[in-house]
């Protein structure tokens, strides 16, 4: 079987699982878990196309993954900081708990 097709299928299902977690979880931290899964699925595609595509001296795919990982780390840090901030006000990480903008 075509290895690139296997990789792309894996990536597609991973992305869908992440989306499912984002849509169904109510704990904000676990929503973040879903987002990480989706970012990882995108990275997998870049690696797959680099590995099984034509030779690329500019290494576009791997460089994109490298920067993507950095952005994902920053996003997780800010996301968790915001979640902890909300937790201070509402004493809960439930996404339905914050129902007012008053700080």
């Amino acid at each position: 079987m075509n290895p690139l097709a296997i990789l792309l299928t894996l990536s597609a299902v991973l992305f869908a699982l992440g989306l499912f977690a984002v849509l169904t979880r109510r704990n904000a931290i676990l929503v973040l878990v879903g987002i990480e899964l989706m970012l990882n699925a995108a990275n997998l595609n870049f690696i797959g196309f680099w590995r099984y595509g034509p030779p690329d001296p500019q290494l576009t795919g791997p460089m994109f993954v490298l920067f993507g990982i950095a952005i994902a780390a920053a996003e997780a840090a800010v996301g968790l900081a915001i979640i902890l901030m909300v937790f201070r006000h509402t004493r809960s990480t439930d996404l339905n708990a914050p129902d007012s903008l008053h700080g």
Binding site: I29, L32, V33, E36, A72, A73, A76, L80, I83, L84
Partner: peptide, 14 residues
Amino acid sequence: VYVGAVAVLIVFAL
């Protein structure tokens, strides 16, 4: 980055 930082950060937040 992911396992050493992000996953640990999430566990700490939990």
